[in-house]
Design a protein around this nucleic acid. Structure first.
Lengths: 190, 190
DNA sequence: GCACCCATCCTAGCAGTGCTAGACATTCTG
DNA sequence: CAGAATGTCTAGCACTGCTAGGATGGGTGC
């Protein structure tokens, strides 16, 4: 009994991840509009209702993909910041550049994380660790003594997020990103 | 004949605007998800197909609503900037505050303008005047001689846009906006 | 004044969406 | 090996954006 349920839970978890990665791949190659429950079910070679035995609905699948993305983004930002020793302009630029590259290279994943409606809690006690980790990489770019470092991180994050989404939707020319980033960093670490 | 077509075109233009304002009202009161072609048609007391005799599709209706919004936003920003005489920190703060208030008070309209997919051209020769006017209000907050004023406007706009959308979707606490704006303005006009 | 004609509008329907109820197997248990 | 429980699928609901075809009415020429 226990052995059986153990195996079943293992298979279940495996299929859970299968759905998430399938949704993510589909979104990254064809955009979120192409991610329908039917196509997703076909992709994982199960029928539609199976999706609903794992997730409350399509939104929950998107959230799961987003959570995956936060893990990756945290890793990328962490690597960028670790490459420079101390807080300061260089660290901030490195983190922002990594952030913008992530947004540009994985637009669908970025959408799921930061623009699509989500039930994931931001900035509360129940905020999943990878999400806090992402934000903390921005915070860590400012000196530990600075009382304003959290609000500063919020503003810088807002700015790069704005740049990312406006460029992605064609509302500002995408090739000016580097220059805009220079301007931003200059003002925030002068 | 000419008189008849004249009246008909007038009626057509009237109904065109009727559809746009109905879509906008519906979106502002119940959100864009509630704006379906059926509900919109019922609202204007016509059948669905007449919508398609005025607009290529639902996206075109959203774009028309957005264009309406750009006119209003330009007016709000213009008023805010005109209240202070010269370019500088005070003007920039006034424009940004007006922008953030607009986004907070008309979230659905703001979505149509700045986050929903659109076929409206940004920053090209065919960019509609109201859209350019909005951007120019940001540009006008920097001294006329500054060669960097356009990129600076882009960055500031990106920042306030980021703040607006992240707050709207609950990704940053909405009550910190004023403080974040102070931080931003301080850095960009010090 | 009358018949024609053309523009306008609506009914009905298509293919697709997210989601679910109930029948069908398949697997484990006693 | 029978019975129970678990899992899965088929079929369907109410909805979406969008469109083809027929009816209806007003404007035009005789």
């Amino acid at each position: 009994m226990s052995a059986v349920t153990g195996r079943r839970e293992r298979e279940r978890a495996q299929r859970h991840q299968l759905i998430v990665t399938a949704a993510r791949e589909l979104a990254e190659t064809e955009g979120w509009d192409a991610v329908t429950t039917r196509r997703l079910a076909e992709r994982v070679e199960y029928s539609q209702p199976v999706l609903y035995s794992h997730f409350a609905g399509k939104d929950a699948i998107v959230s799961a993909v987003a959570l995956d993305g936060f893990g990756e983004l945290a890793e990328q930002l962490g690597r960028a910041r670790a490459a420079v020793a101390a807080p300061g302009p260089v660290a901030l630029r490195a983190v922002c550049r990594a952030y913008l590259r992530f947004a540009a290279e994985r637009p669908a994943l970025y959408q799921a994380m930061f623009v699509m409606p989500t039930d994931l809690a931001f900035a509360t006690d129940e905020t999943p660790a990878p999400m806090r980790a992402c934000f903390d990489e921005f915070v860590g770019c400012f000196p530990a003594g600075d009382e304003q470092r959290e609000p500063l991180a919020e503003v810088v994050w807002s700015a790069v997020h704005g740049m990312a989404v406006l460029a992605d939707s064609g509302r500002i020319p995408p090739d000016g990103q580097e220059g805009r980033l220079d301007l931003l960093i200059g003002r925030f670490t002068g």
